[in-house]
Simulated scan of single mutants.
Amino acid sequence: MSGIYIHIPFCRQLCHYCDFHHSASLARKGEMIEAIRRELARRRDEVAPQSVETLYFGGGTPSVCTPGEIAPLVAQVQEQWAVDRFEEVTLEANPDDLTPGYLSALRDIGIDRLSIGVQSFHDRHLERMNRRHTARAAVEAVEAAHAAGFENLTIDLIYGLPGMTLREWQENLAQAVALPVQHISAYHLTVEPRTVFGKQGLAPVEETVSEQHFSLLRERLQSAGFEHYEVSNFARSGYRARHNSAYWLGAPYLGVGPSAHSYDGSRRRSWNVASNPLYLSGTPPEEELLTDTDLQNEYLMTRLRTAAGLSTAEFSARFGETETRRLETQCAVFEAAGDLFRTPAGWAIPPARWLISDYVISRLFR
C-alpha cells in the first residue's frame, strides 16, 4: 500500500510553537495549487497503480483552501493511481474555518476525516500560542463537523505548556472526551529554536510537570475508552489513523508540495525544498539512499513508538542474526530497568514509559 501526503504551506496566522514550513501570505495560493498538481503528474510513476489507500492534506492549514481548490487534487490522485476507494482521506483544519457550508462541501468532494487543531479549550492558552480561534469556537467546530456527517474526527491537544496547571489540563481532557471525536493526538510542547517561543527563550516545563501531564493524559483517555496505540495518539476501536500508521510500519509514501518528504519503502528518501518561491520556480527535490545502519535505526525508531513494538523475527530477517543478538542483549538491560518488555513477537516500550521513548530508542541505535 501507499499513502499520498499533500502539503498546503499556508496559514492565516502563525502559531508561536510551530516549526513546520508555512507562510502567512495567501497571495500565491492558486499558483501553489497548480504547482502541486504538476508535481503529482510528474511523479505518477513513483507509485504503483491501485496501491494508494490513503490521502492526507497537511500543512500549514489546508482549510484555508476552498473545496474548489481541494477537489481537483483529490480527483487527480484518484485518476492517476486508479483508486477505486480510499481507505481514508484526511484534511487538517482550523476550527474557525469549519462553517456548516464548508463542511458539507468537504464531504461532497470526498474528505471523510478531519484533523481539527484545537490545542486547548482555555482561551488564555490559545492566546499565548497565537491561535486564531477561541475555546468556544473549537467546541462548536467539532459539533458542527459531527452534525455534518463526519464520523471520523480527530483533534490535536498540546500539554507541557509552561503555566498550564494540572487542573487546566484535566479540564482540557474532560472537554475532549465529551465531544464526538474518535481519535485524539496529544503532543508535549517542544520549544524549537526557530519558533516564536524559541526566539522568546521560553523555558520548558520541569520533568515532574511533564510526567504529571502525561500520566493524567493516559489515565483520562483510557478510562474514556481510547486505546493508546502510539506515543502521541489515542483512538477508539477501529479508528486508528491509517495514513500515519503506515509511516510507523515503514510503508512507502509520496509527499507533494514544499517541504514534503517521500520514501519508496526500500532505500530512497527524498524531500522538497522548504521554500514557497523556490518550489514554485521548479527546484527539484533532494534525495538520499539510506544505509543499512540508517534502515536499522529507523526500524527501531518507528516500531518502538507503537504499542505493538518490534518483531524479533522481522528484525532478524532484515538485519541478520548478529545484529539481532546485539539488540537482544541491549533490550535485556532496559527490561531490567522496566523500560522495555517482551511481547509474543519481540519487544515494546511500556506505554506508561513512552515519555522517555526517545531516550530508550536512541540507546538501541547501531
Results as ranks from 00 to 15, higher is better:
residue 151 E to L: 15
residue 176 A to T: 09
residue 73 L to P: 00
residue 2 S to D: 07
residue 110 G to E: 06
residue 248 W to K: 06
residue 75 A to M: 10
residue 143 E to V: 09
residue 200 Q to T: 07
residue 301 M to L: 15
residue 327 L to Y: 10
residue 220 R to D: 05
residue 180 P to H: 01
residue 260 A to H: 05
residue 85 R to D: 15
residue 25 S to K: 06
residue 204 P to H: 03
residue 323 E to S: 14
residue 366 R to N: 13
residue 196 V to W: 02
residue 362 S to W: 08
residue 308 A to C: 10
residue 321 E to C: 13
residue 284 P to K: 06
residue 146 H to C: 03
residue 316 S to I: 09
residue 26 L to I: 08
residue 237 S to K: 14
residue 341 F to N: 12
residue 266 S to H: 13
residue 275 S to I: 03
residue 33 I to E: 02
residue 169 W to K: 02
residue 311 S to Y: 12
residue 103 L to G: 04
residue 332 A to M: 15
residue 25 S to L: 05
residue 6 I to P: 03
residue 216 L to H: 03
residue 114 L to H: 14
residue 219 E to W: 10
residue 101 G to K: 06
residue 291 T to V: 14
residue 318 R to Y: 03
residue 218 R to L: 04
residue 197 F to H: 01
residue 231 V to A: 01
residue 88 E to F: 06
residue 306 T to R: 03
residue 5 Y to L: 08
residue 95 P to F: 02
residue 77 V to N: 05
residue 18 C to K: 04
residue 110 G to M: 11
residue 243 H to E: 13
residue 274 A to D: 01
residue 227 E to T: 09
residue 278 L to C: 07
residue 158 I to K: 03
residue 305 R to N: 06
residue 184 I to L: 00
residue 126 L to P: 11
residue 86 F to P: 00
residue 96 D to L: 00
residue 271 W to F: 11
residue 356 I to S: 00
residue 279 Y to N: 01
residue 107 R to N: 08
residue 233 N to C: 15
residue 47 V to H: 03
residue 44 R to M: 10
residue 269 R to D: 12
residue 24 A to G: 11
residue 273 V to N: 04
residue 115 S to W: 11
residue 6 I to D: 02
residue 342 R to G: 11
residue 114 L to R: 14
residue 162 P to Q: 08
residue 264 D to A: 06
residue 46 E to G: 05
residue 189 L to Y: 09
residue 84 D to E: 12
residue 276 N to D: 05
residue 352 A to T: 11
residue 244 N to Q: 07
residue 185 S to D: 11
residue 96 D to A: 00
residue 311 S to I: 11
residue 75 A to W: 09
residue 348 A to G: 10
residue 359 Y to H: 13
residue 252 P to D: 13
residue 48 A to V: 13
residue 110 G to P: 04
residue 6 I to K: 04
